[in-house]
Every structure is written in structure tokens, then in C-alpha cells.
Design a protein around this nucleic acid. Sequence first.
DNA 1: CTGAAAGCGCTTACAG
DNA 2: CTGAAAGCGCTTACAG
Lengths: 354, 354
Amino acid sequence: MPPARPDSAPAATPAMRGAHATIHDVARVAGVSVASVSRVFNGRDHVRAEMRRRVEEAAAQLGYVPHAGARSLSMARTGAIGVVLPDLHGEFFSELLRGMDREASARRLGLLLTVLHDGRGLDTLAALRGQVDGLVVMAPELDPDVLARYMPRGLAAVFLACAPQVGSLNMRIDNRAGAAAAVAHLAAGGAKRIVHISGPAGNLDAQERRAGAEAAAAEAGATLSVIEGDFLEASGTMVGERVAAGTLAADAIFAANDMMAIGALVALKRHGVAVPEQVAVAGFDDIPLARLVSPALTSVAIDIAAMGARAVAQLAAQIAGAREASSGEASTGADEVIVPHLMVRETTRETDRG
Amino acid sequence: MPPARPDSAPAATPAMRGAHATIHDVARVAGVSVASVSRVFNGRDHVRAEMRRRVEEAAAQLGYVPHAGARSLSMARTGAIGVVLPDLHGEFFSELLRGMDREASARRLGLLLTVLHDGRGLDTLAALRGQVDGLVVMAPELDPDVLARYMPRGLAAVFLACAPQVGSLNMRIDNRAGAAAAVAHLAAGGAKRIVHISGPAGNLDAQERRAGAEAAAAEAGATLSVIEGDFLEASGTMVGERVAAGTLAADAIFAANDMMAIGALVALKRHGVAVPEQVAVAGFDDIPLARLVSPALTSVAIDIAAMGARAVAQLAAQIAGAREASSGEASTGADEVIVPHLMVRETTRETDRG
DNA sequence: CTGAAAGCGCTTACAG
DNA sequence: CTGAAAGCGCTTACAG
């Protein structure tokens, strides 16, 4: 639709044309100014009851609904926040979104999803300016400088599990501690030859989990061999089959996420390997599925939904702050670290307690 | 930020104020008109190389990024589609979103998520006007008239698993056929007393699945007792425990979705009931988890991701059509029915074949 | 309490 | 090829 309508009949109202009624249509029908219609709909200023009645009547008659786009341009507020995710595979992101929605719904904020299919989509980030009030970004595989280059300037942002962005609020998972706890637990259960299925080499979470696993293995005097996976079930399956076949010696497997752990677990069981008696298995994330497989999977737990909710809350605070301070930078609170804890279940041997 | 900036120094450019540079800033720095800047950025019309160079230089210098909100107001196109979902629990919605994103990303469309927490949120639907180009709505628990009342008029829409909306494109799952296939399979495996864990009474999918189950049970001469669940694991657990305790007589359980079936399955196993020997179990949806539990769950499969992708593709076609026809109604293609198929796995007895 | 007007940041016929 | 101007549909100081 061209901005001008030179060729439409001058008397035709948008409502007549099948398009939506505008605030001008309502004003005309109600016999008042557009300013008054606006006031009635926003309900801040006082308007006389009679005025309100007439406007509401006209609006109802025309089926008028304010145009959110125009509104946000005028008010410099969209009511939406952008969510940038690396991928949508698996329950991790489903849980994360659920938590984000919980918080966003409560604040009447929309969630605009942008998925970075291994790098592609980065250029759409900048285009989010004017479409969202802020961004929650999760991009564990991206170089922080590259990411910074594509971020729209001056937009509030919270970074989740990314390489830290200076000047922004970063929420990080303590991957090292979580992985170390899992490996220490395996070693305490008697494991001597631990296989670690890592995430992709470029992934920050993967790097940190691997480092934590290596440190704990060294500490416990166990050997740790690393096989690179891709966070998908199939790479776990492959390792499980090699272990079952005897090609890969292991009395324990620690995977960098649950889906790979489950892949390994299922493969081991299929080949008659007893878990945890012959080979213990542990994962990372503690997705809902972890307790449903059998034996139930020991995993490093993070409250994913809570993390998502927290990120949205932080972002909302940042947006409100920027709005208040009106000019320029919002105060970005201190970075936050999420500390995971180990959920011991049936795929590992419980160690003595007291 | 007030629309006018009466109190800011007249010489201050937005860029200087920490805010974003606008097209006017770029035009001024490049010494050209805003129209030309617009042309360079949209790349449709021809512009001289020298002009392009100057504009691009100025834009780079100012860190200019076009304002999507203003753009969409001008062009009457947002580049986003709204996704309205009843809830985010479980893998079903994760899969659905994944499919939608696959298609939306390919078309460079954003996905604006709106979750209807049992009814709440309906009033935000209308507010989507001007924020999205169209809507994919999934609301199996909503009365079609109520839904119609809240839908923004004149916005393209595809309805997924809703009570059919006249004049719109509806995509429906053939729930009756799917449920009937599952129950027929259970009966063929020898089941005589089947317990059906239904979805909530107000849910259309639930109603149809129940009807299909009842028809098939009657056909096969098996009894079917219905216990109302809520699509969550816990309601399946409860039924599983009653069956294990002998309070509820059953040689087979058919749940209206997989999470309830898995709840029942886990409860039965925990209490030492052999599946499928003593009690067979079947679910509906065939979420990825279904094949990971053990024994692996027999389930009525629908390609959830494909369904989501298809809905987005249909919506995109509808939007393009409306844009082409310029005035008024888009042609909404014929309704579509998704036909599920039964995935037989280990929780049911395989019946003879040939 | 209400209205006229300017402004939000773009795009695009229209006329050079 | 380029610029001036009108327009997208709202909101909000400003002046009654």
C-alpha cells in the first residue's frame, strides 16, 4: 500500500475499503478530535464521561483497534523483547522459552524469536531495532567481537551463556564447577577411565565443561579421554556403541549435555551393557527427560526455566531504567553466575554418605 | 521520550545523545536527501555509485541502522508473524516452534510468540495489529466464537487444531482416526478393558480423541472407561498407580497424549506391572521422547514440526496474496487435514501380520 | 477537559 | 538519477 492514496475515492474510509479503521475514522464518527480518542484509549488523562461514551461507541461500531506499530513509533516503546537463540533442538530451549514466557507474559511483553542457524541470521539482529525494546541473546558459539559488531547499538540487552560482553549484563552458567562435580562423583563411584563426550569445539559452554571435567579427573587420578560431539543424541549413540563394542575402554561416560548422555545410555543398554554396573553415565542440563529414561540419568542440573525468567526480568529492569534515565546508557547490574548442582540418579553409583 | 524534543539543544543529533542515528542524520552527513539514503538502503531504484558510496560511508560512520518500526509503518509490512499458543509445556510445542522457525527463517520472517495462559492473554491478540503481518493460532480449548471476537479483523490467519473458523484457513489433525487406530491396535493385541486417559473436557483435540477411542472400542467389543486428565504427566501417573493398585481394572491404557502415557508407564513399571504383558500402553503425538522411554512407547504420530512449517508457509502465501490483491480479502485456500499414523513400539503387543 | 499541530522515522509517487 | 513533500497511524506538550 503506497503511503498516499491518490487513486482511491476520497470519500472511501479505510473501514469501507476492508482495511482497518484508524483513529481518524473513530474521531470523525464520534465527532471529536483524534487527541481525545487517543486519551480515551490510553486512559491516563481525564476525559468526560460523555466523551468517553461517544468514542467507545464509535470505536465499537467501526471495530477499531489501535495500530501497535504506529503506537510504538510514537511512544518509542514496542512492548516486545527479542530472544536470540542458537537453535531450537531439544528440551533445553523449550524450557528456556517457557521460563521467558512466564516472566514476559506477567509483564505483558511479547517475545520475538530469532534463531541463529549456525551464524546465518546474524544480520537480522540489527533489523530488530524499532521492533523490540531489548534483547536476550544466547549465542554460545559466537565470537564475542563478531556478536558485538552485529548488535544494534543502544538497545538494552542481556547475554545468556555467551562469552561476556563488556558493558552489558551477562548471565553465565558455572560450567566448570558443574562438570567437575559430575566427574568427581563418577570417580568417587570407582570410575578410572572416563570418556567425556564434549560439545562442539567452538562452543563456550562445551569448552568450559570440558575444562572442568579435565581438572576433576586429574584431581581424582582418573583418566579422561575426550570425544567431540555436537550436543545431539546421535553423537552420544556413537560413543555408546564404541564402548559396548570394546573399541573404546571406559567405565564411565560424562556427556556435555543430556541428549548425548541419553544417546550413549540407550546404545549401551541395547548392547547389553549394564548401567551403572559396567559403565556409569552422567549428563548435563537435567532436562525433564533425564528422570524419565531408565535407568534415570544422573545430570548436572540448572533450573533452565528460572534462568530464562531471570534473564527477562533483568532485561525489563534495564529497559525501565533506560526509560527513566531517559538519555543514554541504562545501568546494567552486575553479572550473574548460575551455579548448577548435581542430581544423582540411577545411572551412577551412589557414593557413601556420612 | 516525548515526540518533540523542545528541551534538548537544537544542535544535538540523536547520535550525540547516545540514541540511534536516524535517516536524517545520515542524509545530513552525506549531504544528500533522505530519499536517497532510503534508496541506497533499499536498493531497488538505481542510484549513482558516488551517491551510494557517500551514503554508505556516512551510515557506517554514524552506525546507522534503519528503524524497523518506522519502516513497517510506512510499508504496511512488519516482517513478523504472530504465533498464538495455548501453553509451552512439553515437547509438543517445542517441536511445533522448531518447524515454524524453519519455515519462517527461510522466509526471513520473525516469530512473535503470544501464549494464552488458560484464556488470559486473549486481549493482547488485538494489540498485535500493526505488529505482525499475520497470525498462526492454536487454541484447542477456546470457543470459536470467543476466539473470533478477539481476532484482529482483516489480519491474515491460519488456525491450527482449533474449532474451525469460517472464512479462514484451518489445519486440523484427524484425531478421531488416530485415536481409533490406537484403540483398534490395543484390542487386536488382546485388550478387553481399556482405560482412556482423556484431555481436559473443554479441549477439542481431547474430545475428538475420546470419540475416536470410544468408537473403536465399541467396534472391537472392548470396554472403554474414561478418566479425565489434563495432558500433564501427573494425571497419567495417577491412573498408572490406580491400575497397579488394582483399584482400576485395565489390560490396556490409551492416553490422549504422550506425557500422560509416559506418566502411566513409569508408574506401572515402578509398581512392578509388566508392560505390555500385563498392561499395554499407547499415547498420542509421538514426541521425540516416546522412543526414548523404555519400553519405547507406542504412539499416534503426527509430524509436528512439519505441521508447524506448513502453517507458516500457508500463512505466508495468504499474506502475499492479500498484498497482491491489495484491497481486502486474501483467498484462503482449502482447509487441510493432517492424517496421523500409528507408531507401534514396545509398550503394546505387536499383532500378527500376514 | 479538549483540539490543533508537531513529531516519531521511515517510504514513495511526483516532478524535475 | 535526485529532492521536496506527503503520508503511514499514532501520542503528547501546548494553549485554550
